[in-house]
Design a protein around this nucleic acid. Structure first.
Lengths: 141, 141
DNA sequence: AACATTTAGTTAGCAGGCTAAGCATTATTG
DNA sequence: CAATAATGCTTAGCCTGCTAACTAAATGTT
């Protein structure tokens, strides 16, 4: 009995995350971005000149992933890389004007997507839901 | 105010799903499987000789993805493909003994993973949580 | 019967994501 | 000071996942 419920929860989470990714990703294509790249840019909008290791931590992914994402974003003219003067191992990542210009349109898309996800869930319920999610999040560590 | 909560929910979902994928995927590597392949096999454990289109529907993904997954699983000896006698366009997918043998170990890993995710959440709370997730799921369609 | 359309899968090429291995460069330590 | 270790990043190769364009087979239509 409880098994059926548990099972649904895990599968439901899977379905939600993949559908979220699909929908949001599709929406981002209108800005010439791929899903995930917005999160890298988000870190840069908070502050430029960050190292790739710092991007790793923010994105919670491995260095090769960041290498690839940075390469793609650079080729599309959203960011540029500059070797650090002090430490020649370090690559610092900066926004181009094109990259800066995306902040507002991405935020709009993000809000739209969020609204769609949470429609018809009251503010109180959202708080309850948030608790559950935080619980699961810490369970996974 | 509400924005902060909403934002946390979306990000929380993202973090949970990627962490789930990482943890469960890592666990599946012990069985020589990649995350997602278990779901394809799961469909076959319910019944063999399914077409790739049916696998698409079950996995909720596009045909090329199934082509790749099937190729990989075939190369690793978990499944085999057989052209349909009636309709030569159709490829029917069958489990090998090696593929059949994975059912129990995968189920064990799945349960372990599920238990970890939902630990310290009561049965009643799980039901409430499930409602929220189903609401979000239908919101995305 | 001949042509057009739909269906099932494949291929190529791209994205995010991973591991393993390698390469500089910097820091540590004998 | 020289050998070693740690750090930051890249490359190669694999995974799921996508779209666009293709092939081959079955079905519809004229």
């Amino acid at each position: 009995m409880t098994d059926a419920v548990d099972c649904d929860i895990r599968q439901s989470l899977d379905r939600i995350s993949s559908q979220m990714r699909r929908n949001y990703g599709e929406s981002l294509r209108e800005l010439n971005l791929y899903v995930g790249q917005d999160n890298l840019l988000y870190r840069l909008w908070l502050g430029d000149g960050v190292t790739q290791m710092q991007l790793c931590e923010h994105l919670k992914c491995e260095p090769p992933t960041v290498t690839n994402m940075v390469k793609s974003l650079e080729q599309n003219g959203f960011i540029y890389r500059k070797r650090d003067g002090q430490d020649a191992r370090i690559m610092r990542i900066f926004l181009t004007d094109k990259g800066k210009a995306l902040e507002t349109p991405v935020e709009i898309k993000w809000r739209q997507h969020q609204e769609k996800l949470l429609q018809s869930i009251s503010t109180e319920d959202r708080l309850v839901l948030k608790q559950f999610l935080q619980q699961m999040e810490s369970n996974l560590l």
